[in-house]
Design a binder for these strands. Structure first.
Lengths: 221, 221
DNA sequence: TGATTTGGTGAGTAAACACTTACTAACCTC
DNA sequence: GAGGTTAGTAAGTGTTTACTCACCAAATCA
């Protein structure tokens, strides 16, 4: 009598609803893509990290690239920062405007995977990397340029190309993170000190020296 | 009569001496690694680009990683810049010191693959990426910090953390290239204008306002 | 001239890869 | 509780990958 091939019951993981699984996959994949890049991450690893089978992964996302695209598309919001800055901007509180922006990037940096994800997507030339850059950097960068332009017109800042000046400021901050996160160069100062130094350097560089008047007063007092 | 398997003569490429082949391989691989990263580049592509067989590639480099390491190890020199700057530094010509450094990164950028290679190696966590970073950035960065510290002691620059100030300056420049090369944001100004703007911003930000005295004189004239 | 070294190849190989197939089991109605 | 839909899997498939093997021929040397 031939042994009937008794089909052993298949291990069923958890049976989560669709949106929960999707979120789980995206989170797992997100961190893997951030540390190893697109080519450096295998679908098997992703499935394992998400606690499911590879087959199920492909039921949710038709291709590995589609999953990657979904991740990039999801990581958009940066508008909360602009909203917070708006108030300070209305009061022309330069210190506060630039400190808020710098702190956001240096201290909070909501999602530590963002920078790596952004760099990888740009280097690997993903089709969505442009949009990703736009959402993550360019809006802030253009907002800052707009603010600088306004302050120039008001005579508070001296005549410079606002786009270049904005890029200079963002550059200081982003490079700081980059060096720190990618090359493990330690932060030898507290985040507050660091932010304060960058903001002071920048504002002293761009402000018209109206303070001259005050200095004169002080000198003659 | 069984057809004797007549061994057709093997195509022999060129028979170059060792060092020539090595150089050819390194050049081909270098540009491929820079555009696609380590994982994104196949040994077959490299061999094809170098015009040789894969087997020969592995005669010269035992593994793909070894080839990659050889490339990173080779791309070192940055000392020429420091030498050129030294002269201006001796004369305390701040404008010239910082303009030279900025121009080097923004205009010349000897090897356009360098930035991509550096970022890829850091992201992919290659063991040599630290050394690579050290050779390419850290020396310049530490040199600048040293110069700033000297100028602070001389009273020409105001009291700031020299390391942070140096990083701020390098940050402006590197971010500019990054944005331009990785995200295709166009340079809307000539390289000269760009460099001049960054240098002016930075120097105005870090210099002590001895000009106050002069401004006072001017006001009372 | 003949042996040795050096530069070269075509045709593999085992493992890893993205993605498929064919199926099962839980849940949700009516 | 039958019938459909949704969530899940084990076990593939064909291809690509880094790397090897066995062999060949042009230089160089004895």
């Amino acid at each position: 009598m031939p042994a009937q091939p008794m089909p052993r019951p298949r291990a069923t993981a958890h049976r989560a609803p669709r949106h929960e699984r999707l979120a789980g996959i995206i989170e797992a994949a997100s961190s893997l893509f951030a540390s190893n890049g697109f080519k450096g991450t295998t679908t098997r690893e992703i499935a394992k990290a998400a606690g499911i089978s590879e087959a199920l992964l492909f039921k949710h996302f038709p291709t590995k690239r589609a999953l990657y695209a979904a991740i990039l598309a999801e990581k958009s919001p940066v508008s909360q920062l602009v909203a917070a800055v708006e108030e300070a901007a209305a009061k022309r509180d330069d210190e506060r405007v630039f400190t808020l922006i710098a702190s956001y990037r240096i201290k909070r940096m909501s999602d530590p995977t963002l920078l790596r994800l952004l760099l990888y997507s740009a280097l690997e030339g993903h089709e969505l990397s442009d949009m990703f850059f736009r959402n993550q950097h360019r809006t802030v960068y253009e907002y800052v340029a707009g603010y600088i332009q306004r302050r120039i017109k008001e005579g508070a800042f001296r005549e410079v190309d606002p786009l270049l000046a904005a890029r200079a400021f963002i550059g200081m901050i982003v490079y700081h993170r980059l060096v720190h996160e990618l090359f493990q160069v330690p932060m030898h100062r507290s985040p507050e000190d660091t932010v304060a130094t960058y903001v002071a350097l920048f504002l002293d560089g761009i402000r018209t020296k109206t303070s001259t008047i005050e200095n004169v007063r002080r000198l003659r007092l």
